[in-house]
Design a protein around this nucleic acid. Structure first.
Length: 550
RNA sequence: GCGCCCGUAGCUCAACGGAUAGAGCAACCGGUUUCUACCCGGUAGGUUGGGGGUUCGAUUCCCUCCGGGCGCACCA
């Protein structure tokens, strides 16, 4: 029996009490998994909530509900506890059926329709193409990609997008830095100083010796464009290595070339929020909660970076997305109000059509000593270096298992040294362990799939616990998607792995050498297969590999 | 000065307004003749930064103070 069926049973009882006048208001029943298993498989606080609209005290009301629920054969035990909780325990048979269902659903288990019909544009990283991606970007790579996968698993239509800031002063500084390095000159004081600049310069010198014969101005453009192409490719390669896929790479230049900037301005003017003052063109964002109005076109006729931001937002909406989700670092939180105001100025609902997730910074330590990050001074820890030290699985998992609003401290030495203590290995090990058991089952000819599955044989505490955890998976995905918190999937996997290890320790799966293969072994093999499938599906959402062996 | 985020066990962090605040690491004690011990069980460790409020119930919501991080451009 799924959680929804149980909830409906409770709802029916509540409705009955309403019909009989014991309750004077209609109350929506909610069901939850108690933290403690001692409280049963499910619990409802409906009596506590409904007590206000009843003449009965909460506990008395709870007893009335419990008494009626007891009549349902799917429940073996219904009791009242604490201030008025109703605890429900399912029969082993009802509970055990989940294993069969999971195996049959396969990689589709967990998918649900919580966000069916909604379309999202998820934008993250969006780094300048003037250097390698560093550890800060890596967090958004892991979280953004996992979020996109989770939203899709909840039935949403999702497009991932990377915005390339390939226009403006920084690009020229980048070009000038590479050009200087290529001529063996000192990089300008306000340029980029990392070792990668020297590498880019060397490569361009090798492949395009003719560049240095060009007049200074043309030479700058040539170096800038070539360095941009190489650096962008490098970013794409590294993200590919990191299993982070972008459906769209959106260039700021394209925004201008396609006329999107003018279109956005026209849209904002139609809505009546644009005005002229002091020789500049402004957007009245203060109407919608911003601290100050923002300039779109400067006194000197140039468009601001903000103008591009507005155009980009409007363009996303014109491409048909219901909601534009932005993942931004805490150093950009000042943008939240103005971006939301942009949405409102464009005539949209700023609570519905735009969502900005602010992620806190990742502090890096090495042996307890903080590593300062600064791209321009060249002191960086790159995504690539992190992957080399700890691997893609550990990196992705470690960064995805915390809520983004948590400032994170990652010690590189610790991750590298204690790789085996990382929760990702604990989860992967559970998957590998099951794979081994199933291989052994095949070796001894245990054809569990073709054998009768008798769910009521799964009646130990550990089996009940494990099945209960497996059953939560679709709800976990739905919650993770609705709250935009993919870390919930990782936490769930740790709980699931723990429940499996506990089961494995207490319940022998395969027959011992002196035993015959029996129905209990078959039933437990179904449980193993269901657990393995759930682990694999969850790891897939995080972009972490489900290993067959370790 | 104004604004946003954070403050939970020695450390890194969980806990969509629920029951006795939980995991991992570190510390201590125990467990495997047989399916992967990279595992399992147990002990110890807390005024959830302080103080008010909201309600059946607050780590969670509101106010205030303290501490830390980050932002407050006709920069990009």
């Amino acid at each position: 029996m799924a959680i929804n069926d149980t909830r409906e049973s409770v709802q029916r009882v509540v409705d009955e009490l309403f019909a009989q006048g014991i309750l004077t208001a209609h109350v929506e029943a909610t069901l939850e998994r108690p933290k403690s298993r001692e409280h049963g498989d499910y619990a409802t606080n409906v009596a506590l909530v409904a007590a206000k609209s009843s003449s009965l005290p909460p506990r008395e009301l709870a007893h009335q509900i419990a008494e009626r629920l007891s009549a349902d054969p799917a429940f073996t035990d219904v009791s009242v506890a604490g201030p008025g909780f109703v605890n429900i325990r399912l029969s082993a048979q009802t509970q055990g059926e989940i294993a069969e269902r999971v195996v049959h659903l396969g990689s589709g288990y967990g998918r649900n329709d919580a966000l069916l019909g909604k379309s999202f544009n998820v934008e993250f990283i969006s780094a300048n193409p003037t250097g390698p991606l560093h550890l800060g970007h890596t967090r958004w790579a892991a979280v953004g990609d996992a979020l996109a996968r989770v939203l899709a698993a909840a039935g949403a239509d999702v497009t991932t997008e990377f915005y390339i800031n390939d226009r403006g002063v920084q690009m020229d500084k980048f070009g000038a830095s590479v050009m200087a390095a290529a001529s063996g000159e000192a990089v300008p004081e306000d340029g980029y100083h990392g070792g990668y600049i020297l590498d880019l310069a060397a490569q361009i010198n090798r492949e395009h010796p003719e560049f240095r014969q060009l007049p200074a101005e043309e030479q700058l453009v040539a170096f800038r464009e070539e360095a941009y192409a190489l650096q962008w490719q490098q970013q794409k390669d590294v993200l590919e290595l990191f299993r982070t896929h972008f459906d769209v790479w959106y260039s700021e230049r394209k925004l201008y070339d396609s006329g999107a900037v003018e279109r956005a301005q026209a849209r904002l003017e139609e809505q009546g929020h644009v005005f002229e003052s002091e020789g500049a063109l402004w957007l009245r964002t203060t109407t919608f909660g911003d601290d100050k109005d923002r300039v779109l076109i400067k006194e000197n006729g140039e468009r601001t970076y903000f103008a591009a931001d507005t155009a980009y937002y409007v363009d996303k909406r014109m491409r048909g997305f219901d909601t534009a989700i932005y993942l931004l670092g805490a150093d950009h939180h000042g943008y939240v109000n103005r971006l939301r105001a942009v949405a409102a100025c464009a005539g949209d609902d700023m609570d519905e059509n735009i969502e900005i997730l602010i992620g806190q910074m990742v502090k890096i330590t090495r042996g307890g000593v903080e590593v300062k990050l600064s791209k321009r001074s060249g002191q960086i820890v790159t995504l690539e270096e992190l992957v080399e030290e700890v691997g893609v699985d550990a990196a992705r998992y470690t960064l995805a298992r915390y809520p983004v609003e948590t400032p994170l401290v990652v010690d590189l030495e610790e991750i590298a040294r204690k790789a085996n203590d990382n929760p990702v290995f604990y989860v992967q090990y559970a998957h590998a362990r099951i794979s081994s058991v199933l291989r052994n089952a095949e070796d001894i000819g245990a054809k569990w799939r073709e054998s009768e599955f008798i769910p009521e044989l799964l009646n130990s505490d550990q089996e009940n616990e494990l099945l209960g955890v497996i059953e939560k998976f679709p709800a976990v995905i739905a919650t993770a998607a609705e709250l935009r918190e993919p870390h919930r999937v990782a936490r769930f996997l740790e709980e699931l792995a723990s429940a499996y290890h506990g089961f494995y320790d207490a319940c022998r799966v395969l027959p011992r050498s002196d035993e015959e293969l029996g129905s209990v072994h078959i039933a437990r093999l179904w449980v193993c297969a269901a657990t393995q499938q759930t682990l694999a599906n969850g790891l897939e959402l995080l972009g972490v590999s489900a290993r067959e062996k370790m």
